[in-house]
C-alpha cells in the first residue's frame, strides 16, 4: 500500500527556516537528506518533493475563454503544504512511524519541530474482493 505524507507549515509569508541560524539550517537539511537516504535504502521511497514557499505560490482559476487568472496571496491559509513523500509500505502503522520520524526533524537550536504531517492512503488498492 502507498501513502502520501504531507508536511504542513504555517502559511503566512516565506518559510521560517530562511531566518534560522546557519548551523540549525544545515542540521535540518542533513536530517532530511539522511531521512530520504534511509527510506530509499529500505525500498520504501516512491517519490518526494519539497515545494517552494507560500510567497511564491499562485492560485489559478480559468477566466474568460479559459485564460488563466492568477492570484498570489494567501493571507487566510493557516497551513501550507511545504513538501511530501510517497512511500510504499506494508502497513498503515509503518506509514505513521515514518511520518513521526519526519515530524521530529530538528528546528531552531536542534529542538524537534514536531510538525504536523498529514498521512493519506494513495488510492491504489484492488477494486473490491475479486472473489464473488
Amino acid at each position: 500500500m502507498k501513502y502520501m505524507l504531507m508536511m504542513n507549515t504555517p502559511g503566512n509569508g516565506p518559510y521560517q527556516i530562511a531566518s534560522w541560524p546557519r548551523e540549525d539550517l544545515v542540521r535540518h537539511i542533513q536530517f532530511m537528506k539522511a531521512f530520504a537516504r534511509k527510506l530509499t535504502a529500505a525500498g520504501e521511497l516512491v517519490a518526494a518533493e519539497g515545494l517552494s514557499g507560500p510567497d511564491q505560490a499562485k492560485r489559478v482559476r480559468a477566466g474568460n475563454g479559459g485564460k488563466p487568472v492568477t492570484d498570489g496571496v494567501f493571507p487566510e491559509s493557516k497551513e501550507f503544504l511545504a513538501g511530501y513523500w510517497i512511500v510504499q509500505v506494508d502497513s498503515p502503522e509503518r506509514a505513521y512511524q515514518i511520518a513521526a520520524e519526519a515530524s521530529a526533524a530538528p528546528g531552531k537550536g536542534g529542538v524537534p519541530l514536531n510538525m504536523s504531517i498529514e498521512v493519506r492512503e494513495v488510492m491504489s488498492e484492488a477494486p473490491r474482493e475479486w472473489q464473488e
Partner: peptide
C-alpha cells in the same frame, strides 16, 4: 507492475 521507481524495487528485492 507496482508503479514504483525501478531503484525502489531493486532496493526492496535486495533487502
Amino acid at each position: 507492475a507496482f508503479l514504483v521507481p525501478e531503484a525502489t524495487m531493486a532496493q526492496r528485492i535486495s533487502r
